[in-house]
Design a protein around this nucleic acid. Sequence first.
RNA 1: CGGGGUGUAGCCUAGUGGCUAAGGCGCCUGCUUUGGGAGCAGGAAACCGGAGGUUCGAGUCCUCUCACCCCGACCA
Length: 585
Amino acid sequence: MLHMKMSQLFSRTLRQAPAGAESKGYEFLLRSGFIKQLGAGIFTALPLGYRSLKKIEGIIREEMDRIGGQEISMPVVNPADIWKETGRFYTIDKELSRFKDRVGRDMVLAMTHEEAVTSVASQEIDSYRQLPQLVYQIQTKWRDDPRPRAGLIRVREFTMKDSYSFDADQEGLQKQYAAHYESYFRIFGRCGLSVIVVGSDSGMMGGSVAHEYMYLSPIGEDTIILCDHCGYTANRQIAAFAKELFPEEMIPAEEVATPNTPTIESLAQFLDIPKRKTAKAVFLMGTFTGEDHEEFQKLIIAVIRGDLEIEEAKLQKASGAKDIRGASDEEIRACGMEPGYGSPIGAGNCIVVVDDSAAGSSNLTAGANKPGFHMMNTNYGRDYEGITADIASAQEGYSCSICGRTLRSSRGVEVGNIFQLGTKYSESLDCYFQDVEGKRKPVIMGSYGIGVGRLLACLTEEYHDDKGLMLPITVAPYQVHLVSLVKDSNEPEKIYQDLCDAGIEVLYDDRKDSPGVKFTDAELIGLPIQITVGKRTLQEGAVELSLRRESDKHKVPLSDVVKTVQEKIAALISEIHDTMVIESL
RNA sequence: CGGGGUGUAGCCUAGUGGCUAAGGCGCCUGCUUUGGGAGCAGGAAACCGGAGGUUCGAGUCCUCUCACCCCGACCA
């Protein structure tokens, strides 16, 4: 339906914000009657909110179709078999919800659809002639997140656009990846959301190259590291930075009494040395999955120079652990080390990961694994061994690894991501094709997601004032809010019909409420164009037209209403298109 | 999963262990009113999250439990 009378609208506006609406965007989504919460991280989209979501989905469809996507719909409930075959049934923790059907078969609620799509592709694709392929869907996902929060930003049930590319070779994947890279800028641009793209960790998806699209906002849960000079951007989970190393001539290690110095801070102070002359050992318990899918736990010792901090996502990747958590004192002692005075020197059965800051700097003071004692002048390679990797957390103020300038950090919300999956899923689910020479090869895949509800949530954070929402015309539930302040006249009804007949999307406030109520609601819902039909102007044969984002009203003769509105709509749309920034890979 | 908090009508809130649980917004009826959340009159709507317990008596105290929110852990 293009139009709606407010007297008929299913939802209603709230004068007061329900308790628990932390952010403004979320508060207005609730107050304007866009959404309603049903449970933790579970929401109903009411008519207005659903219309906005469908607008966003419409933009996504157009842009996916533009790069050759074919829309499909895959089931939310999957047989667990395919998830067992890829191993994710075992490697993903409680976030993946499982249940048994009546016969006792293991089932899962799909949190993403790599398994399902690869399974179907394996049956459809046999030849290089059928490649490349791109399919997408806009489908419900369930992820039993340990902590939903922030309204629609982080929910358990949500709608996601997920697309999957299938290619015969790496070049093909690159091409589809690049197409998505650009397409996403068009999608977010058309919605009116400015985003930045950052390099990211591939997390549970596996694969190598990945990017995230970030809406920069203090409410974001991710930390982004940026270099304003050379344009380097990355999620902190993988962000690199330039580390200064301090190699020296190695000198013999020496035990030294250091009472009451369980922290780097206290140790450096006690010995009167800079923190960078120390090696910090952080102990974590890693959960690993063996060949037979059996889980086991192993202590991980992460060694890093004392002036830096560990980035757990990097450590997890470097150690190969499926999960990582802080180790208890007992667990540390069980491997022969002393909490607060620990180091990998003489460590028992555990995995040692050494940050290159510690490996590349000499004569560092590390724990002696004896309460109250440290070892001075320890050296990687001589006194202990381990995997070396970058496991340090990038911080604001550090130096850019590319250009050397100072890095900045910002908070961001991930609204989209693109992954180069490679052959992880095609190999495990037997999705092979024959190439020109008749050779059997696994299909090379990519996977690409956009959170639709999260995108709307970000838009409401970006587009509001103290009175309510002011969504861009491309995503607002309706284009025009027609407010009638007159009775005993059928002129508003006529205007309403004329606008509808012209294909304009109108929300018509035909209620018997007072002007104040109507104006306030119009501001709260915040449709981009408002037409007010009042007694005075009507006597002059005119109505008033205003834009939500501006305060001034313009008189428009009755005969010009449709035309003027059409012009305004066109202007607002082209304004969004004109300010769109599209980046290429 | 750890820490903290909140559950009283659709929404926001009040309610020393003591009569029939109170108010505002919203809702219904009637009249009045129509350029910024109107007025008057009348009305409907709550087993006070749930279960136990203490007590002559529990919305109020105790125990357990459930739900939701916030911080952290976690997370595409």
